[in-house]
């Protein structure tokens, strides 16, 4: 994993990084410009409690990564920071190698191409599945454009396509409120796809799902990972193993261990954190 040190990197990107801010320690290995997501030396605390502590994390274009960790490890807070919901107290967060995410808010980050699925499935329950996807489709975002907008054939095609990918075609005109828990999770993933993001952040996609649904979701995510970069936060080890991707284990706001699932689950530090206390 180790490559050139970072402090020497960036003269070719004037607008973003100020050299002084490069943390002296905990440098992630790798060039920033090779990454789609780049977090370095990020810390954030709430009322003195350090939710994220000098966290460094990077994701390459097209990579799928699973993030595991016990409760309170900072998984959700990390997503909050990437999506602009929480501002880090210190540290750098870059998207696509050169966009400083700490300077943008949620809608701006979302339109750049970072989609997020919440831990608790969050869909528009007052709308049908079709409307949910239509609202998520990339494109019209301004108020005045949305006043006059009519659905195009291209949009229709994308919706049909996403409905097929998420296996919700037969529920197209059903109200989202009457979907099952698993179907809501899929709808939300479908909405993420409709956004045509570059990165998908997926928070606990299989919580509360049956085994069959879990397997189906793993298939869906692997499908998606073929054309997107994906970060999956999950507790379910079987599911993570199913995904078969590199795993990052967080603990108390920093990276505890990183590697294949076998490597991580054999790591004595990880075992201690999960079982030792």
């Amino acid at each position: 994993m180790s490559e050139t040190a970072l402090a020497l990197a960036e003269p070719d990107e004037p607008d973003v990084m100020t050299g002084a801010e490069v943390a002296a320690s905990g440098k992630p290995a790798g060039h920033r410009e090779d990454t789609i997501l780049y977090l370095d030396g990020v810390s954030v605390s709430f009322d003195g409690f350090k939710a994220i502590n000098n966290l460094s994390f990077l994701l390459r274009e097209g990579e799928m990564r699973a993030v595991i960790g016990p409760n309170g490890a900072g998984k959700t807070t990390m997503m909050d920071i990437i999506t602009g919901k929480t501002r880090p107290d210190e540290g750098e967060v870059f998207f696509n190698g050169n966009v400083d995410l700490t300077r943008h808010d949620e809608p701006a980050i979302a339109t750049m191409g970072i989609g997020r699925k919440f831990q608790k499935p969050t869909v528009f329950e007052g709308h049908t599945v079709d409307d949910n996807l239509a609202l998520a489709l990339s494109g019209v975002r301004s108020i005045f454009a949305s006043l006059a907008h009519r659905r195009t054939i291209e949009e229709e095609r994308r919706i049909v396509e996403i409905l097929e990918t998420t296996r919700l075609s037969h529920l197209r005109h059903t109200s989202a409120a009457s979907l099952s828990h698993g179907q809501k999770q899929w709808l939300e993933i479908g909405m993420l796809l409709a956004q045509s993001p570059k990165v998908l952040l997926v928070d606990e996609p299989v919580a509360g799902m049956t085994d069959a649904e879990t397997a189906e979701t793993a298939r869906l995510l692997r499908d998606i990972a073929r054309s997107h970069s994906v970060v999956v936060v999950e507790h379910d080890m079987g599911f993570v193993r199913d995904l078969g991707v590199k795993v990052t284990c967080l603990h108390e706001g920093s990276v505890l261990s990183e590697g294949t699932i076998d490597h991580v689950s054999a790591d004595p530090k990880v075992i201690e954190v999960y079982l030792g206390r």
Partner: peptide
């Protein structure tokens, strides 16, 4: 308004404001 895409957006903001924000909308507007 209710029948337009904006109308759907209004209801979306009512039901899940955060979701619209993470979809790239500005619910405040």
């Amino acid at each position: 308004l209710g029948a337009s895409r904006y109308g759907k957006l209004m209801v979306a903001v009512r039901d899940a404001e955060d979701r619209t924000r993470f979809l790239g909308y500005r619910p405040e507007f």
